[in-house]
Design a protein around this nucleic acid. Sequence first.
DNA 1: GTGGTCTAGACCACG
DNA 2: GTGGTCTAGACCACC
Lengths: 130, 130, 130, 130
Amino acid sequence: MFIKIDMTCATPIYEQLKQSIIRGIATKALQPGEELPSVRQLASDLSVNMHTVAKAYASLKEDGLISVHRKKGAVINTPEMHTADPEYLSKLTKLLEEYAAHAICKGVTAGEWLNVCNNAYEALNEKRSI
Amino acid sequence: MFIKIDMTCATPIYEQLKQSIIRGIATKALQPGEELPSVRQLASDLSVNMHTVAKAYASLKEDGLISVHRKKGAVINTPEMHTADPEYLSKLTKLLEEYAAHAICKGVTAGEWLNVCNNAYEALNEKRSI
Amino acid sequence: MFIKIDMTCATPIYEQLKQSIIRGIATKALQPGEELPSVRQLASDLSVNMHTVAKAYASLKEDGLISVHRKKGAVINTPEMHTADPEYLSKLTKLLEEYAAHAICKGVTAGEWLNVCNNAYEALNEKRSI
Amino acid sequence: MFIKIDMTCATPIYEQLKQSIIRGIATKALQPGEELPSVRQLASDLSVNMHTVAKAYASLKEDGLISVHRKKGAVINTPEMHTADPEYLSKLTKLLEEYAAHAICKGVTAGEWLNVCNNAYEALNEKRSI
DNA sequence: GTGGTCTAGACCACG
DNA sequence: GTGGTCTAGACCACC
């Protein structure tokens, strides 16, 4: 796992960490069932505090992306393909509206917008198929 | 101006304010050339600190969405002034990748993803045509 | 607010604190809209660490019982009477099954059980009506 | 024995185990006088540590739900041995108050509360009559 | 060994 | 002054 943390970045370390792991899962670099390093281990690897890592893991657990297995530590969950959770999709739509609004202001057309969205999704999927 | 601020929301007030204005521009509720209220005016209307409004305006200016004139105050830029430059689109793609990655983890398919993206864009366009 | 923390108790301090506040809301000792003390304030009052209080507040926020208002700090939410959230009720049922099972093992009859449940609810409601 | 342990669950294994057995007794799947598997046996069946099983048994014994004989091992106590003593009921009331308080905060009415409590009890009784 | 909890002291963004 | 984040070092429950 290649997790890189930018200490100078404004976004909190634990969120960068969370995002890195999410990216890893999305690109299948992290397979379902795979174990994540222990909080202590990862903390020392990244020269970051234990609690910071713990917070990232807790957030991922809350999102249902990982589970904390006794003794095995944190493991990647298998996504529930069956349920395209409408609640989640609606929340996602709202979040995307922010970017969409900004894009419209910048003169981005509907076609360009969908193209960008598609690129974002496929950029991850490509790595996935490798 | 129909700006509503949620004081209990986690996102900073100045960002909510900025986002409200962006949404206003995107839906054409705010027309190019139109003047925004003065910092003092808007601050008192929303009962927030002057600095908060000023920060929002500064951020909008930095994004090239408004211009600040000495006399007229803040005015909405004309859409012709912002070109859908590839640099912006590539930055946007990176931002969207975060959401795309999370969506993939949650089992959202490419079709669902594009559908959500389209909905987000059209939700703003619909209001626009009213 | 009379919050008492038992440092010798096995249950974490932040949970005791959370429970105390929940009790306060249930008995109307804490009215909707009322402000809770700041984390620093409460922490010093209870001679407990700031973070411990913050954790309790965060948990209450997640449960939708309080909101963190900018500048006003944490304020009690007004319960949404309209929605008897079925999801919540089903989760609650599962939790209660644990106690019910134990009670059955101890020879508690259905009548006694319902009586105990009613007492627990009314014990809070009585204080409420004062 | 139909005991399922969730290694990813936050509640300790020994408590899950204890709760499973309690549920078994409550639903009469485990009859009074019946012998529980030996600590070694159950531990190997569930692939958990011996100490974990022993801890669960010890806790059940402390609650007066089983007895541990030298030769026969752990056996389920007969219901006649546990009387619905007022002390137990009062302790139970206090525990239930926690849930009741939370429910009140969430806007659950007295009727809904009693309904939920009744459902929890009957859910076990139904399985019992099968 | 693991994660969970608590403490203490620090910095920063926000308002 | 407020909460949010990060650090460092400690103890404990569970396994």
